[in-house]
Amino acid sequence: MTDIIRTRLLGKSYGAADTVSGVNMSVKRGEIYGFLGPNGTGKSTVMKMLLGLVRPTGGEIELFGERLHDGSIEHLKRIGHMIETPVFYEKLTAEQNLELHAEYMGYYNKRSIREALDLVQLLGVEGKPVRQFSLGMMQRLGIARAISTRPELLLLDEPINGLDPEGIQVMRNLFRRLRDEWGVALLISSHLLSEIEQVADTIGVIQGGRLIREVSMDDVRESTAAYVEIVTTDSVHAAFVLSERLGIANFKQVGERTIRIYDSMLTPEQLSKALIVNEVPIHSINRRHHTLEEYFFNMIKGGEGHAASHQAGA
């Protein structure tokens, strides 16, 4: 049993509107799962369903190998979470908030509170009332609270929001450490690919309440297609030469001066030689990869197309 989270056809609808539907997701022990999607596409709702804060209207959830029911609470001991903007008892100090949390979680270890505060670099302000904290500090404290009870699963909703670049770096390192040293499974949502592609092992893309795809980052890196990009001042002539003289069919004009050639047998050197011989003015020629942004953007656009045709068919 390596799946810590597994959902089958998980859905939530309010009235007639589906907020989340048909989500099949699986998160393994010791992996960082990036939950990627634009704002308002149901990421938080899925996380709240995992925590039992929102009751699913369809499908099922399995956590740590056991199916959730109404009122099941035992599994909550093993989960740390920060959903949306973290809330605190603001009159209490940071430390008191964490102590209270530990008491409710039934986790008694004074040292782990200081350790958590240290990991998010909040030591020194633990005696201040949370009311006086900035947004970024609250965000750190929320993460400290989530990890202070040594959970096996962490649900973090947009954890990097409101952090400065240095804080972001600290958090990224922390996430990797939690995964590598404690074997924690992390489900981290974000609406920005750049925020999670560096830490995630798997990425689940959610769009319009549907989990469009679940891919491992290794696969993503492999399948981001390579191409040769030519920048020329005469793209019309270049296109003509490519298709008529060199017999290349699979290329695309991107912008006014740029042409991309996919799966050509020719190397950039051979290409440049052939183009120069045919009097195509070349500004630059490079071998490139699809950026991850493009990869996921295409995936999301594909998802929309799929959803549209699905609706049309219905």
Binding site: K48, L51, G52, L53, G71, I73, E74, H75, L76, K77, I79, H81, I83, V87, F88, Y89, H101, Y104, M105, G106
Partner: peptide
Amino acid sequence: KDKTISLLFAYPVSR
């Protein structure tokens, strides 16, 4: 009102 209830209700304690 302060939404701290979402914290309380995610504890392993019966609501």
